[in-house]
């Protein structure tokens, strides 16, 4: 009898293993087919001096060496860090607040939810154009309002000074991204069983304690993951900075993605563009590795 039991259990494990592999295989197969070639291509070309239209010859790590010696590269790294940290912080904080807000039983909750998701749904290019217009010192509405409320004396060139420009791109990125975090966390909040709150309330917990013991653990995973995804996306974000400032003024908002584009398409130097892109791999890979570690541990 015992032997029979073990035999069944063993085959169940194998069955589950096979099932697991079967379920994950579409994703893995797809990503392998479509992404492996690009990665290898990128790695290879970054070791050449390829320009658009030419074959390019192997130059080893020259591109990378040039980059490391280039102060503009390091300035871009610094800008990227500032941009990402600021934008992600804003998005996560306000996103969680937004989620908590929408979880309450407010009037017209569905309508409000739909409205708050709008910034995310507008094509990036279009929303950036509108922000550019709003920030404009020529006929922009922001300057108009500030002037009329006498908050400032003369029009501010929001995109003209390095720090203001960085603030502007961070703002636009955060504006777009807050709904993403907000709705993602909200969905996590909605998965929480209402009875848990009841039980906690009966046990005498107040609002803050309930938040800490019920809400927070439940949305921890979702929030962490939303943060990871947002961070990765923010690091690769290109359109917003490119359309608003093209990396200016005087490289004040030049981040790695715009730098890569500048090399690749303004200078037609694809080898170098890829080197910029690939150089941020290792730190990012490590970041992803550690943050997803806990996610992957099964209890």
């Amino acid at each position: 009898m015992r032997q029979g039991y073990f035999f069944r259990k063993g085959s169940r494990q194998t069955h589950l293993r096979r099932l697991g592999i079967a379920l994950i295989s579409p994703v893995v197969v797809y990503m392998l087919i479509v992404m492996v070639f690009p990665f290898i291509w990128a790695l290879f070309v970054s070791l050449t001096d390829k320009k658009v239209g030419s074959e390019g010859s192997f130059i080893g790590f020259q591109n990378y060496v040039d980059l490391i010696k280039d102060p503009l590269f390091w300035r871009s790294v610094w800008n990227t860090v500032i941009f990402t940290v600021a934008a992600v912080a804003l998005k996560v904080v306000f996103g969680v607040i937004m989620a908590l807000l929408l979880n309450e039983r407010i009037v017209f909750r569905n309508v409000n939810r739909a409205l708050l998701i709008l910034p995310w749904t507008i094509p990036t290019m279009v929303s950036v154009l509108i922000w550019q217009w709003i920030f404009s010192d020529i006929s922009g509405v922001l300057n108009y309002i500030l002037l009329n409320l006498n908050i400032v004396e003369e029009r501010i060139g929001f995109l003209a000074s390095r720090s203001l420009a960085m603030g502007a791109v961070v703002l636009v990125n955060a504006w777009r991204g807050i709904p993403f975090v907000g709705i993602s966390v909200l969905a996590g909040l909605q998965c929480i069983d209402g009875t848990l709150y009841e039980a906690a309330r009966i046990d005498g917990a107040n609002v803050f304690q309930r938040f800490r013991s019920v809400t927070l653990p439940m949305i921890k995973n979702v929030t962490i993951l939303a943060t990871i995804v947002t961070t990765v996306w923010t690091l690769g974000d290109f359109e917003i900075v490119w359309v608003l400032t093209k990396g200016g003024p005087a490289n004040g908002t030049q981040i790695l993605s715009t730098l890569s584009y500048t090399f690749g398409f303004m200078n037609m130097d694809i080898g170098k563009a890829l080197a910029v892109a690939l150089i941020s791999f290792p730190p990012l890979a490590v970041l992803i590795h550690f943050t997803t570690k806990r996610m992957l541990d099964q209890s």
């Binding site: 293993r17 990503m31 990665f39 690769g236 290109f238 892109a277």
Partner: peptide, 24 residues
């Protein structure tokens, strides 16, 4: 579920984001 390659393949999927679209 638990199966061989679980951790690796799930992380590999996320690495797809590391190559920016402007060169990808």
């Amino acid at each position: 579920l638990d199966f061989p390659g679980r951790k690796f393949s799930s992380k590999a999927v996320l690495y797809a984001y590391l190559l920016p679209r402007t060169v990808l």
